[in-house]
Amino acid sequence: MKNHAFSLLLILIVFQTTLLAQSKSMVYIEGSRYIPLYGRDSTVVEVKDFEIDIYPVTNAQFKEFLKTNPKWQKSKALKLFTDKSYLFNWKNDFELKDNEAPNSPVTYVSWFAAKDYCECQDKRLPTVDEWEYVAMADETTRDARIKPDYNNQILEWYETPRTNENTIGLHPKNVWGVYDMHGLVWEWTLDFNSVLITGESRKDVDKDNNLFCGSAAVNATDLMNYAAFMRYAIRGSLKAKYAMKNLGFRCVKDIND
């Protein structure tokens, strides 16, 4: 009986890993219209249906990527695309430092590397709107932003140091089935520098100034904006070649009808 259970377990594990490697590594997100967390007055954005990685990309996954894409290895990555701290927690081109867990989210990666990682798998980085859309869910609701618990939890995490050293999947998944949108690492988004991309800088200036202004955050009507302020402020201060200790990423995929 014991033997039987063991082999069953083995089969389960094998099955699960193949599943994880395939479709189950992503979940379907039903798009909708919503007002982003940063609360630009009544500006509704539309998010189309897409799939998103359940977990942030891990060290182990990135290691695989480096094998087939040597140009992103620590010693070979171009200065145009990376800064000095790129893969800082790696011993060399192929090995993590000893105290790094393979199952921790990969960090110290630049936007260029993250973007290429996703594109190599026929995916892409999520837009800010997509990321925020998935991130506003809690365990039971798609939009949990009005719940005090939800916000308190996020802020609590913002106060917790070195969460990047944790492994993926330790927090409960949200209602979409996605793990670690909060509580592990910050994540790259495709258009973190979106103001330039929309080109509507002249329109955005007045409103978006509020985003990065500390006093605006203090005046915000509720805590919900404060957590968002922090995320947007971080995005606003990033450069695409930066690598940071607590900045990782995950990928999304468009749904082709």
Binding site: N193, V195, L196, I197, S201, D208, F212, K239
Partner: peptide, 27 residues
């Protein structure tokens, strides 16, 4: 779209000198 975004980010490399709230990047 992706190529433009990438190129914009390459140029953004030098943007750090101005404050993050200054959106005159494109200029």
């Amino acid at each position: 779209e992706s190529g433009v975004r990438e190129f914009a980010n390459v140029l953004a490399v030098k943007y750090k000198q101005i404050s993050p709230m200054d959106f005159s990047h494109s200029n």
